[in-house]
Simulated scan of single mutants.
Amino acid sequence: MPIYSKTQVFGQSTPYLDCLSHASQLAELDRPVLILGERGSGKELIAERMHFLSPRWEEPFLKLNCAALTESLVESSLFGHEAGAFTGAQKSHEGYFERVQSGTLFLDEIATLSLRVQEKLLRVLEYGEFERIGGNKVLHTNGRIVAATHADIQSMANNNEFRHDLLDRLAFDVVHVPPLRNRDTDVLLLAEHFALSFVSQLSWEYFPGFSERAKSTLINYSWPGNVRELKNAIERSLFRWGTPTQEVEEIIIDPFASPWDTDQHKNTPNTPKTSSEDKEETNSLKDFKTLRLRWELEQLEKAMKKCRNHQGKAAAALSLSYDQFRAIWRKRNQINNTPANTDD
């Protein structure tokens, strides 16, 4: 696996290997590049890879999350400012374009930049020059810009929310980072990597591995939060599992899920005891619930057969969310006396 700087890139799926190959080819060119991908898909890793495979690899690699700062702070961070340029500016400050020298500047979430900052950025891309805030001296930079966003930046440009001319300059070429749901073969590889990295923090001597049940959960989940969500789920699951000598059985994807069954209702002290007639009525209601549950499970089983036991596809075929599907699927032990296997 390719290693650069302090970062390792993991992936063996075709979509991800194609993405890495594209980024590696662009690394050699001295042109701006735009990286598109969902949140948590690893856009920053691609940018870092491009820098360390480029002729600029010995120069600085700087990164700025444009969405994390206000317009004034972004402008000051990028271009710097002179002393007295605004309230609180007691001394002059070098911006990223000065500090990057001949290295690479990664601008994450570039679609959040204001139109005014976009105009100044366009000047840097076209002429390699800029001025500090409050200054009148023209400064120059030889840094390469690699930008990224999860937004539909083309639609933003069409709606005059992003400058077309800046987009044209940024997008000499575009690298598309595939979401984790399109990288099926990478899920377990990444999960084991995150687990191995986390066991030392738990003071475990080794990682015992994932059970087949846990692997099935990992593979069948759609991971809308991508690699970042997977990493959090793995670390959370190991922490809660707490048994360093046994395979991890359960993957905790949703930490907000209540551990209590909200469907169960207990009688209050003021409720009178149930008569025989009431008990019969209650049993009838339970039988009805059982019949309904049996029917629901039959539909799920038909969908599973049709979708070759892929729970995500089966849920979509039934117009259910994945969580809705799993909630019903887990209730099979109410029908059968055998323990439920939630990972078929």
Score class of each variant (00 low, 15 high):
L291A: 07
V187W: 02
D343A: 10
F172L: 09
I252G: 00
R181Q: 15
H193D: 05
R228Y: 05
I35T: 09
F256N: 13
F194N: 08
L293E: 04
Q8S: 14
F256R: 12
K231W: 04
N333G: 14
R308S: 14
K63R: 11
F194C: 09
S203N: 12
N270F: 03
A47L: 05
M156F: 02
M1A: 09
I219L: 07
L320I: 06
A214P: 08
R332S: 10
T70G: 15
P178A: 09
S114F: 05
R163Y: 05
D173L: 10
F239A: 09
L20D: 05
W295F: 03
E126R: 07
K313Y: 12
E129D: 07
G134N: 07
S72E: 13
E249I: 01
L20N: 06
Y127A: 09
Q324H: 10
E192L: 04
N267E: 01
A314M: 00
T262L: 12
T338I: 11
M50L: 05
I328W: 09
N283W: 08
I252V: 13
L300A: 13
I335S: 04
E229Y: 05
N267Y: 13
F10A: 08
T149Q: 09
P179M: 00
K313I: 04
S284M: 04
D278E: 15
A315I: 00
K231C: 11
V117Q: 02
I110G: 05
L121E: 05
T268L: 13
E28V: 06
N309G: 11
L36P: 03
F325E: 02
G242S: 08
A23V: 13
A67H: 13
L34C: 00
L297C: 08
S114V: 03
A157C: 01
D30Q: 15
A316S: 04
L230G: 10
A327F: 06
P339K: 01
W223V: 06
A111W: 02
R213H: 13
Q246P: 03
T290I: 14
L73A: 05
L238N: 04
F325H: 04
N267D: 01
A23M: 11
V74Q: 12
F198Q: 14
W295Y: 07
G103F: 06
L318S: 01
S203W: 10
